[in-house]
Amino acid sequence: MKRVGALGVGTIVFHLLPLLGAILTLVPLVWMVGASLMAQGEANTVPPPLWPDAPTFENYRSLFSRLDMARHFFNSVVVTVSATVLSVLINGMAGYAFGKLRFPGRDKIFGSLVAALVVPAQIGMLPLFLLLRELGLVNTYAGVLIPYLSSVFGIFLIRQYVLSVPDDLLDAARIDGASEFRIFWTLVFPLIRPILVTLATFTFLGAWNDFMWPLIILTDTTKQTLPVALANLSGEHVQDTELMMAGAVLTVLPALIVFLFFQKTYVRGITQGGVKG
């Protein structure tokens, strides 16, 4: 498809627009990194510098030594990794059942689940909080995890993909006397691995970046995740631009790395999730 030719003037002019777009997209992130390496007060000067004269890691040192950011980083990792693993298992099982198992009311149940995608998650947050209080789960990691574990979108994603698994394969295994769980674990799971990786990436990024729920449910400062800790920090250290930017880098970086690593499957999940249906 792509025509390889000499770099003409036309090509260069044509590329100016996307290039400008890329610069506009990147500037906030570049400034974030630049400011995080500046000395205290350097960011608040006229004209605003994009990059420090003499980069320093002082702000990062403060984050870890004085503000205990390692703790919050660790919290985020625990919550996010647990959410990812459990979500893949739980939604994987449900998606498989909706795609390949026969039971009465299957399509009706699935249809009403999909309709519920319209319901904003924030609607039930206050009652959910009160509910978890009765269960003693406020201020626990289990409490933070709960909304990430089972998601309609996740079930939908898996179900659409599972449909592409040939029925004959499953039936052959059934005739051999394999249990449904065995079939799922040894046959289906490996076959749908690409979509599981996609769901895992989605869940990871969603849980890592989530703000409102951990803000509400984790009252204990030492249990808070990075985004909540960062918002708290900005309440106390709003004037310390450079320190705040170091905190922002620390929060954003893992998500960016995970994205770059799993970019292919992640993008495929966004663009092809429904195609196979």
Binding site: T25, P227, S234, A248
Partner: peptide, 13 residues
């Protein structure tokens, strides 16, 4: 890239 960044962090930025 901006899509995967943390909303709270970039709002502060």
């Amino acid at each position: 890239a901006p899509v995967v960044t943390t909303l709270v962090a970039v709002a502060i930025v």
